[in-house]
Amino acid sequence: MKVRVITFPGSNCDHDAFEVFSERGHETRMIWHKDHSLEDPDLVILPGGFSYGDYLRCGALARFSPIVTEVISFAQKGGLVMGICNGFQVLTETGLLPGALMMNSTLRFICSHQYLRVESSNSPFTFKINPGSILDIPIAHKEGNFFIDPDGLKSLQDNDQILFRYCNHDGIVSAKTNPNGSIDSIAGIVNRSRNVLGMMPHPERSATDSVCSQDGKQIFSALERYFTGSA
């Protein structure tokens, strides 16, 4: 795959994403937010971090970076876009994904391992991962509390757009296993056409041999299976 990782001023997980995809043998390039070309990508990554220092609202200013116009048009043509953490926040600000990410109900920055339950295999990002699978993927955020109005939530549920929910190691989803107050324990969603993913957890931080959880590899393998199958 040709993978393009966008760097905004304040991004800090761009190099992690770059390394993971490079290590897996993909032609990976970093793209600066002021650039105007995505250089013919198969997959675009909006990485984690604090774009523009999270000023005004997380992701609100990054949304107006020149490259984001290209990302929007790439996504609207069906291109694969993956927003991780701050990238998820940017995607909701662009309107490519519904809802918004609010401050954690605990008011604290949370940095910890977190279990996720895969809710749907119907996406390039979870392609052929068994629904119900439990992944240990770290979270690190203060604004990860997903919010959407009741109609929007119903639409996400009815259209099978919720890919990941926060759970415990047994896969139980409850208020207790929800780290940040996210509505319906949502950790990651796709758009209606299923080519744009936003997720708060960091699969790129659990996808190399040097770290203790490597469950993030499952998401990257799913993307590779999907890409090989459809290429």
Binding site: L56, R57, A60, F64, T92, E93, P98, G99, A100, M102, F147, I148, D149
Partner: peptide
């Protein structure tokens, strides 16, 4: 366009 997020 910028200062308020109509979702919230």
């Amino acid at each position: 366009s910028l200062l308020a997020n109509p979702n919230t």
